[in-house]
């Protein structure tokens, strides 16, 4: 085997001429950056955060919201409990609303999501058969205490469909088209009306 090692030798004349030039070149590069940071437009690419924000991608997801069509008292959610069962860290708590006789209604009385536990995986959105729960993009949700402020109740989670269109236009358009088709299919199918 042959081993290579770094042998030091006195400089050649040509290399000697370049002594000190490396230092000068380095310093000129830095000086150029310094001057360009004042004169060239995009040379400093820092985003000064609270004043400037970068646009967020459409598919960005953070914490879930519940969508309603007309009124907040009538959400799309029917309290089927699928999202609570599928949620990996089990952050969703659902209690079905009951009427005066004790029969179950098709809406949740209590819908709590503990956003300090939620890991933003989006599984609840994928498994909901009623297009009720979707992922929102809000991330500036700092709070002063965890148990009180970061446990979101149903009133905090409900959003109108127009909001959903605003944050995810393409998905919302697709979902709406699908629901309209299902409505049309339900209405035109014979024997489904009660």
């Amino acid at each position: 085997m042959s081993f290579l090692y770094a042998k030091r030798y006195p400089l050649y004349a040509k290399e000697q001429l370049m002594l000190g030039l490396g230092i000068a070149k380095g310093m000129i590069v830095t000086l150029k950056q310094f001057i360009e940071s004042y004169t060239k437009k995009g040379s400093i690419f820092t985003v000064q955060y609270p004043e400037e924000r970068k646009p967020i991608a459409e598919a960005f997801r953070n914490f879930p919201i519940l969508v309603y069509d007309e009124t907040p008292e009538d959400p799309r959610c029917v309290a089927c409990d699928i999202c609570a069962k599928e949620c990996p860290p089990k952050c969703i708590t659902i209690v079905r609303d009951r009427d005066e006789q004790g029969r179950g209604l098709q809406k949740p009385k209590l819908f709590d999501i503990d956003v300090s536990v939620c890991m933003s995986c989006g599984i609840c959105e994928e498994v909901c058969p009623f297009d009720a729960i979707y992922m929102d993009k809000e991330f500036e949700l700092s709070a002063y205490n965890r148990m009180h402020s970061l446990n979101f109740h149903q009133e905090q989670l409900l959003r109108p469909n127009s909001y959903f269109h605003k944050i995810r236009p393409t998905d919302a358009a697709q979902i709406d088209a699908k629901r309209k088709e299902k409505e049309k299919a339900k209405n035109t199918q014979p024997g489904t009306t009660a």
């Binding site: 042959s2 030091r8 290399e15």
Partner: peptide
């Protein structure tokens, strides 16, 4: 300067030992 920089061995090249 030339004499001193000749004396300071700073170039390196890889050689077989």
């Amino acid at each position: 300067f030339i004499a001193l920089s000749r004396l300071a061995p700073t170039g390196t090249r890889l050689e077989k030992r």
